[in-house]
Structure formats: structure tokens, C-alpha cells
Simulated scan of single mutants.
Amino acid sequence: MTKVDWKPGTMIYPLPAVMVSVGATVEDYNIITIAWTGTICSDPPMCYISVRPERHSYAILERTRAFVINLTTRRLAFATDWCGVRSGRNYRKFEEMGLTPGPASKVQAPIIEEAPINIECRVMEIKRLGTHDMFIAEVVNVKADEQYIDPRSGAFDLAAAEPLVFAHGGYYGMGRKIGKFGFSVQKKRRRRGTALVKRKK
């Protein structure tokens, strides 16, 4: 295998393609599509989004210090892309895409009702970086669409929602499941009624 050196760049893919909703009032409501996002702490639950200062949503985020990360799906692919290439200065994105703003429980920002998961975030710190600034936030509430919740286990089946991911400028669906966390070290169960017998030499 031969390796070649590339200039330093953002090569961590795939990433979630999420729609981030902002705005404390209906007049301010906006949606910005973000791929630079992720988890940074489990307890307390914390995440981040990185936004260019020139984006319309940046000033709203700075003022309200709150946002909602809305996970996206195959069905929301068109709206996800459209909200990423159009500016909230010129469009009312909820209306243009036929999306429904709903009330968040803990923050001053709308949720997108059509999204399977809405993650309510409160900004703790803004880190000034280069092309983007990072909004570090605490997750203060999560709303989940009950149609994807297993009534027996209470677990959320995100795969059934067909989540959307982003890689090198393209949107993709999820592939088939190849294992679960810890499967590489999980001991195989013996079948009932069978035993291992060493042959005598």
C-alpha cells in the first residue's frame, strides 16, 4: 500500500448533516445546515457547532446563546441542502421548505417538528478560531419522535429513521449494520446441548 502526503485539511468523514434552528422570536427563526458538529462530553452532555461569522445565523446565536440540532433523514435531504445554500437574510426557510417550527422545552429556539431528534443546546462558550467559530454548548433537553421508540425496550431506533450523513460534498444514507459496540470482544455463547470434547491422541 502506497501513501501520499496531502496538505492539512478536514478529512474526518462522514459527518452528520444536521439542520440547526435558531431564533428567540418568530421573526428571527432561521435554519442553518451544519456538518461541523459533534459530541465533546458525555457527562454533562455537551456538543458543538462551528459557524462562519458571516453567516446570518451567527449574530442570532451570539445574541440568544441557544440553538437546536435537528437530525436529518433521507426524506429531509432536499430541505437540508436548500437550507445550507440559501441565506436567512433573503428567505423564510421554515415556510419555503414547508417545515414546522415547534416549541423547545428548555431554550429560546424552535425545533423542527419533522426531524426525528431535536437536541436543545445552551451555549457555554464561543471559541474564536479561523474560518469558523466554535459554539460549545450543553445539551439541556432532547425530544424524540415516538414512532421510532421501541415500546418494549424504550430504545430509540435511529437507523429506522434513515439518517443523513455528509462526506466530501455529498449526502449519503447509512449502510447496513456490521456490528454493535463491543462485538469484537464479546464471548460467543455455547449452543444448548453441545459441549466441546477434546480428542484423545
Score class of each variant (00 low, 15 high):
residue 1 M to C: 06
residue 2 T to H: 12
residue 4 V to L: 13
residue 5 D to M: 10
residue 7 K to V: 14
residue 7 K to R: 15
residue 7 K to D: 12
residue 9 G to P: 00
residue 9 G to W: 12
residue 10 T to S: 15
residue 13 Y to L: 08
residue 16 P to T: 13
residue 17 A to G: 14
residue 20 V to T: 15
residue 22 V to A: 08
residue 24 A to Y: 00
residue 27 E to D: 09
residue 28 D to K: 13
residue 32 I to G: 01
residue 36 W to N: 06
residue 37 T to N: 14
residue 37 T to E: 10
residue 38 G to C: 06
residue 40 I to W: 03
residue 41 C to M: 07
residue 43 D to Q: 13
residue 44 P to D: 01
residue 46 M to L: 06
residue 47 C to L: 14
residue 52 R to V: 08
residue 53 P to K: 13
residue 54 E to S: 14
residue 56 H to Q: 09
residue 57 S to P: 03
residue 58 Y to A: 05
residue 59 A to E: 14
residue 59 A to I: 14
residue 60 I to G: 00
residue 62 E to C: 11
residue 63 R to E: 02
residue 64 T to K: 05
residue 65 R to I: 03
residue 66 A to M: 00
residue 66 A to W: 00
residue 67 F to I: 08
residue 67 F to M: 06
residue 68 V to I: 11
residue 69 I to T: 05
residue 69 I to F: 05
residue 71 L to F: 13
residue 71 L to G: 01
residue 72 T to S: 13
residue 73 T to S: 13
residue 74 R to M: 12
residue 75 R to G: 08
residue 77 A to I: 09
residue 77 A to G: 06
residue 77 A to M: 14
residue 78 F to C: 11
residue 79 A to K: 02
residue 82 W to L: 14
residue 82 W to Y: 15
residue 82 W to N: 13
residue 89 R to M: 14
residue 89 R to F: 10
residue 91 Y to L: 06
residue 92 R to D: 12
residue 92 R to E: 11
residue 94 F to C: 02
residue 95 E to T: 05
residue 100 T to C: 09
residue 100 T to D: 09
residue 102 G to F: 04
residue 104 A to W: 00
residue 105 S to P: 03
residue 105 S to A: 15
residue 106 K to N: 05
residue 108 Q to S: 15
residue 110 P to C: 04
residue 112 I to T: 03
residue 113 E to N: 11
residue 113 E to V: 15
residue 113 E to A: 12
residue 114 E to Q: 15
residue 116 P to C: 08
residue 117 I to S: 02
residue 120 E to Y: 01
residue 123 V to E: 02
residue 123 V to H: 03
residue 125 E to S: 08
residue 125 E to Q: 13
residue 126 I to H: 05
residue 129 L to A: 10
residue 130 G to V: 07
residue 130 G to D: 10
residue 135 F to Y: 06
residue 137 A to N: 02
residue 138 E to S: 04
residue 139 V to A: 00
residue 140 V to P: 02
residue 141 N to K: 05
residue 144 A to G: 03
residue 146 E to Q: 12
residue 146 E to W: 11
residue 147 Q to A: 12
residue 147 Q to W: 11
residue 150 D to L: 03
residue 152 R to M: 10
residue 153 S to A: 04
residue 155 A to F: 12
residue 155 A to P: 01
residue 156 F to V: 04
residue 158 L to Q: 05
residue 159 A to F: 08
residue 159 A to L: 07
residue 162 E to C: 05
residue 163 P to T: 03
residue 163 P to F: 01
residue 166 F to R: 01
residue 169 G to E: 04
residue 169 G to W: 04
residue 169 G to N: 04
residue 170 G to Q: 15
residue 171 Y to D: 07
residue 173 G to N: 08
residue 177 K to E: 03
residue 177 K to H: 01
residue 178 I to H: 08
residue 179 G to Y: 09
residue 184 S to G: 07
residue 186 Q to L: 10
residue 187 K to P: 07
residue 189 R to G: 08
residue 190 R to Q: 12
residue 190 R to C: 07
residue 191 R to H: 09
residue 192 R to D: 09
residue 193 G to Q: 00
residue 195 A to E: 06
residue 197 V to K: 02
residue 201 K to F: 07
